[in-house]
Design a protein around this nucleic acid. Structure first.
Lengths: 179, 179
DNA sequence: AATTTGATATATCGTTTTGATACATTATGA
DNA sequence: TCATAATGTATCAAAACGATATATCAAATT
């Protein structure tokens, strides 16, 4: 990640749907895409400035008087080109940092009950997040069919498929640890 | 991550199994645990120095003459305490950065063929990695049963379960994109 | 025998990202 | 009324990334 800023394409992608403020971008990242990507203000705001300088996005102040000042960002033709180029690149790095698995892998130094407890916590979290994803899916299936909609639905389906696999594994793992 | 160095527990965990050099640690991270954790020299070596200063690990030079100089690290009682404390902490952050899903989510700005192609690449990579995991599983099932062994097997089983879920999703997704 | 290649081994550097925090405004609601 | 939650922009130290520098040693190639 030390070479090309990955947050750039996240921002460009979100701006390809609608104009947003830095705060909005953070909200979008924390929303529907949070289960497969994360991002913080500390990376968003500097990236917005750099990308504006590079001409990939343009900024303007919201004219709705009465409300507080907002800096809205809009994707430019140049930015769209960058986004499309990225979409057509062959390589894609899929990195996960699963602390639960790390605790599992090194769990041998503690009693089996500790590992079982950690699996319980994991299972509970996944069950909660699965409910959220299923709600997203339900809402997406209601909506009119358009190109973006289909892509949103597919990411949610990915989440559901994998989360259900996680839950199946939890049952197996507990059984194995309890002999 | 800006507060507690996560690489620390990875190092402590690996050192709880055996004494290792910084280079060895990198190899272990790139090996069996690579599918759920990553780590670079740029984080490993500074962490080793800091942890040695903190008394969590101790270092010594390899005495096997004829070979080149190596700095081996050994976990101390203090380090074991830190590792065990971490294992018993309730929270665990499971973060993934799935560029494939990011490309899928924003795929609406390009032709469906682009997204299908990206899924094809993903599928191929997963199939390859799945073969590696199945080989690990086969070898682990042959080995004698001990506490650590069981934990290693469970992480591999997690990988297999989720990778198979990924592959099922790939088939579904392609079908949906081709209408 | 000489040379190249690749693995081993330690270390650092610039860039990116994180997680926390600072600061200020507006809306909610007890 | 007053607290507190949400909105909004911004920065900072610490951590991690990815690349690179440097050097040794074994194995393979010429």
């Amino acid at each position: 990640m030390a070479k090309d800023r990955k947050i750039d394409v996240v921002i460009l992608g979100l701006l390809s749907h609608e104009d947003l403020t830095g705060y909005d971008i953070k909200k979008r990242i924390d929303g529907a895409i949070s289960f497969f990507w994360k991002g913080s203000f500390g990376s968003i705001y500097p990236a917005l400035n750099a990308m504006e300088q590079a001409g990939q996005i343009s900024k303007y102040e919201a004219d709705d008087s009465g409300s507080r000042k907002k800096i809205l960002y809009h994707i430019t033709a140049k930015g769209t080109k960058v986004l499309k180029r990225w979409l057509n690149e062959e390589q894609a790095s899929n990195e996960l940092k699963y602390e639960t698995l790390l605790k599992l892998y090194f769990g041998g130094v503690e009693a089996p009950e500790t590992t079982v407890h950690n699996i319980d916590i994991f299972e509970e979290n996944i069950k909660e997040e699965l409910e959220v994803l299923k709600m997203y899916e339900k809402n997406l299936k209601k909506e009119k069919d358009n190109s973006d909609h289909k892509h949103f639905l597919l990411t949610v389906m990915f989440g559901i498929e994998t989360y259900e696999a996680y839950l199946r594994w939890c049952v197996k793992a507990r059984k194995m640890l309890k002999n």
